[in-house]
Simulated scan of single mutants.
Amino acid sequence: MDGTLFVSETRLLYVGPLVATTLHAHHAAQIVIAPQGLYVEDGAEERIHTRAAVIPPRVPHGHGASGHAALLFLDGDDVASRALSRAAEPRCATWRRDALDVSVPRDPTREMARALIASILSAVDVRQPPEPRHPAARRMCAALDGSDHDSLASLSQEAGLSPRQMRHAFARDVGLPMRAYQRWKRLRRAIAAVEAGASLSAAAAAAGFADSAHLSRVFREQFGMTPTQGLTAITWRTLD
Rank of each mutant, 00 (worst) to 15 (best):
A180S: 07
D173S: 03
Q182Y: 05
H49S: 11
A205P: 09
L71C: 13
S147Y: 08
A233Q: 15
A83H: 07
P135M: 11
A202N: 12
A53G: 05
F170V: 06
P35E: 02
A115R: 08
P57Q: 09
R189A: 10
V218Y: 12
R110H: 06
D42H: 09
P56T: 08
W236H: 15
G3Q: 01
G208R: 08
H134G: 08
V79A: 14
A210W: 10
D211I: 05
A53V: 07
Q128I: 13
P163A: 04
L187I: 04
A180R: 11
A99G: 15
P60C: 03
A115Y: 02
I117C: 02
A87P: 02
A65V: 07
H68L: 06
D211E: 11
S103W: 01
E45T: 06
G230N: 06
P60Y: 12
F170P: 09
D75T: 07
L84I: 08
P177I: 05
A233E: 14
S8P: 03
L13F: 00
A190F: 10
H149K: 10
V59S: 06
W95V: 03
D240M: 07
A83I: 06
L161W: 00
Q182M: 13
V15D: 00
V124K: 07
R183Q: 14
H149P: 04
G208W: 12
S212T: 11
Y39D: 15
A65C: 03
P227F: 04
R167H: 12
L74N: 01
A115P: 00
F6I: 04
A118H: 06
A205G: 07
G160S: 09
L144S: 08
L18S: 02
L5Y: 02
W236I: 12
L121I: 05
D107C: 03
F223C: 11
C92A: 14
Q182L: 14
T50E: 05
A52E: 02
L12K: 12
H63T: 13
A34Y: 02
F219S: 10
G62D: 09
L38H: 01
G197F: 08
F6R: 01
Y181G: 05
A196R: 14
I31Y: 00
A137F: 01
T238K: 13
L200M: 11
L187K: 05
M166W: 00
A20V: 07
A20G: 11
A65H: 06
A99V: 10
R133A: 13
H26P: 05
A34G: 03
A137R: 02
R96A: 14
W184M: 12
R97S: 11
Q229V: 11
G43P: 02
P57H: 06
H134Q: 12
P57S: 03
A233C: 11
G64Q: 05
D75F: 04
V32I: 15
A93M: 10
W184Q: 13
M225K: 15
V194Y: 05
A99R: 15
L74H: 00
A213P: 13
L71M: 13
I31V: 15
V126T: 04
W184N: 09
H27Y: 13
L100I: 10
P227K: 06
R106C: 04
A99T: 12
A136E: 10
L5T: 07
T228L: 07
L121F: 02
I33F: 00
G208Q: 06
P90I: 15
S199F: 08
S66N: 08
R110N: 09
H24W: 13
R172A: 14
A93T: 13
G37N: 02
L239Y: 00
A207R: 08
T21G: 00
R167W: 01
R220M: 10
